[in-house]
Design a protein around this nucleic acid. Structure first.
Lengths: 178, 178
DNA sequence: ATTGTAGGCCAACGCGTGTTGACATTCCAA
DNA sequence: TTGGAATGTCAACACGCGTTGGCCTACAAT
C-alpha cells in the first residue's frame, strides 16, 4: 500500500510525539517510532533527516496562554495548564527530555521565560521581580505535572481538576501578583 | 598500585553518584564511572555485579526530616530541603532518573510518601487529607529543585536561599497545615 | 504499453553499550 | 621461599542503536 508523502510524515510525527512523551529522548528509538507508524526506520530518516530534527519537530510547543482577569489569574492559569498538559503531548515531551538534555532544558527556559513573564508583567506592577515571579509560577506548575503525570504520586493522580485548582490557585495567585 | 577492597568500592560508589546525579541513569555509563574512579570497567562489575545494582547503591537516600515546630514548619522544611539537595547527591540522582525510569519513580514515591506524610500527620488534625497535603508539599519542593537545579531557570538560580524560603514558606505552610 | 518518479523496504555499516572470562600483578601467610 | 588469595587489567562477546545506499514496487503521465 502507498500513502501520500504528507500523510506519512504526519503519521511518523504523531508516533514520535507519543514515544518521546512516554519514554524521553533516549529510550524512544527510531526503530520503535517506525514500528508504531508501521513503516521502515529508513523512512523516518528520509522524512526528518536525523533523530534530533525529528525531536525538534515533535517538541514544537506553545503554551497559548489566554487573557486572564487579575483576580482569577491563579485559578485560570492552573486550569489552563492542566488542560494543556493533557491535550498536547508537547509539554510532556519537553519535561521528560529536559531533565537529561540541555537543548530541551533550553527550550523549557525559553517557553516559560518568554510566555509566563509577559503574563506576570501584565498583571503586576512589579517589573523588577517579574522574572523571579514567573519562575516561581513555573516551579509550582511543573512540580504539579511532575508529581501527577510523571512520578504519579497516588494522591495527585486521584485528585480532580477542581481539587487541584482549589489547592494551587492561591499559591499561583500570590506568586503572580501579591 | 593497589588499594583495599572497601576503599576501591567507596571510590567507585562516589564516582557513580556524581555521574548518575549529573547525567541520569542511561547517560552515566559504566565506562565513564570507571574512568572517573581510575579503574577498569570490569572492576565495577566485580564489586557491584550489575549496573542496576550499582544504581541502587548510588540512589540510597534518606530525607532525614527534623522535628519542626508547627508555626515554622514551612520555612524549616524549605530550608532543610534546599540544604539536603546541595549536600547529598542522592536526591538529584533520583530526580534525574525517576523521570524516565519506573523503578526510580517508585523510590521517589516511597521516600516522599513514607517520610513527608508522617510529618503532615504530626502537624495537622486532618488525617483524611494528609496524603494529598504531603503530595502538594512534594510537588512544590520538587518543582523548585527542578527549575533551580535541573532546568536552571536563571531567576531561580540567582535567588538566595533566604529569598526562596521567603517566597515558598507560606505555600508549604498552607499545604501542611491550613 | 512504456517509462519516470515518488514511496517504501532491506541489509548492512560503524559505534558504544553492559557484561564476561582469561590472564597479570601484588601482597600476605605458612 | 613459596603458594594462594585478593586486586586489577585486557580483549572480546553479543546486542541495540542511528544512519546509509541500493533495490524494489506501485502509480500516473505519456
Amino acid at each position: 500500500m502507498k500513502r501520500s508523502s504528507v500523510e506519512t510524515k504526519a503519521v511518523i510525527l504523531a508516533a514520535a510525539r507519543e514515544r518521546f512523551a512516554a519514554d524521553g529522548y533516549d529510550k524512544a528509538t527510531i526503530r520503535a517510532i517506525a514500528a508504531d507508524a508501521r513503516i521502515d526506520p529508513a523512512m523516518v530518516m528520509r522524512y526528518f533527516g536525523t533523530k534530533e530534527k525529528l525531536f525538534a519537530a515533535a517538541a514544537e510547543f506553545d503554551l497559548e496562554l489566554p487573557e486572564l482577569a487579575p483576580d482569577e489569574a491563579g485559578a485560570g492559569l492552573v486550569r489552563h495548564f492542566l488542560r494543556k498538559w493533557e491535550a498536547d503531548e508537547g509539554l510532556q515531551v519537553l519535561l521528560r527530555t529536559g531533565v537529561t538534555n540541555e537543548a530541551a532544558a533550553e527550550r523549557m527556559r525559553t517557553i516559560f521565560g518568554g510566555q509566563v513573564m509577559p503574563l506576570v508583567l501584565g498583571l503586576t506592577g512589579d517589573p523588577e521581580r517579574a522574572p523571579l515571579r514567573a519562575s516561581l509560577v513555573a516551579s509550582q506548575l511543573l512540580g504539579m505535572a511532575l508529581s501527577r503525570y510523571i512520578l504519579k504520586f497516588p494522591p495527585m493522580v486521584a485528585a480532580t481538576e477542581e481539587e487541584l485548582i482549589t489547592w494551587l490557585s492561591p499559591t499561583i495567585q500570590r506568586y503572580l501578583i501579591e
